[in-house]
Design a protein around this nucleic acid. Sequence first.
DNA 1: TCGAAAATTGACTTTTACGTAAATGCCATG
DNA 2: CATGGCATTTACGTAAAAGTCAATTTTCGA
Lengths: 128, 128
Amino acid sequence: MREYYTITELTREFDVSTRTLRFYEDEGLIQPIRRGRTRLFRPSDRHLIRQILRGKRLGFSINEIREIIQMYREPPGEVGQLKLMIKRIEEKREDLRQKRRDLEETLTELDHAEETCVERLAELGVNT
Amino acid sequence: MREYYTITELTREFDVSTRTLRFYEDEGLIQPIRRGRTRLFRPSDRHLIRQILRGKRLGFSINEIREIIQMYREPPGEVGQLKLMIKRIEEKREDLRQKRRDLEETLTELDHAEETCVERLAELGVNT
DNA sequence: TCGAAAATTGACTTTTACGTAAATGCCATG
DNA sequence: CATGGCATTTACGTAAAAGTCAATTTTCGA
């Protein structure tokens, strides 16, 4: 496990621009440390970037991603806060379960679409 | 199966604005017929709206949704076109499989986060 | 130590997916 | 017939999430 990554190393690894990583920093999603003015990314920042991009692929907004990331952190110490957090986590999970249903349905329809294409191709292959 | 739906019926059913449905029409995703100037939505339009919103929940852009919808339609008659379409469908499916991996990972992490919260709560419940 | 390559900041621009407002049409009902 | 209630069109507005550009530093390898 490396100790630090430069910004360009990570832009190459994740195929994002430096602007994007700075944007995420401005948004408070990551907090790379500084050596002078230069950003140094720790493995934890790298892991956060991974989670952010995963959230993006699933269609979550930056704010939603921020919420999700907070859920991964140390739980709060106060009972009310804890219960609230559990409620939020459950909501987000329901959200994801909906996405999963959407995903399976879409995959099924695409399977069917491909099958139709393949059949059509077979017909043409036979007739030609 | 009803023959026609009005725009407001559908806005209520799907919880979207009229602006949104008109936007989808402008984008060519749906083509409700007209009685005078008034839009009448057929079951097929209704089904398309369902598919569009499903795509949105999965984080697809309007252009991606347009592509997916085209895949559901009658396959083209020409061999080259058919092969191209099969390739595109396969790409989209790979895309969805990536989303599925992302989704499962996120769900797993949220499961873990909730568990941590519940444990913390149990500790507090005992100590208090 | 010196110069190219890399990094930074700040400002402005762009794209997507609608929101919102204004002016007007259509029609049923009292 | 006027009033209310949806519908429509046109046009401009906006928030999110970066992209792009310019003008500086800063760093690092020879």
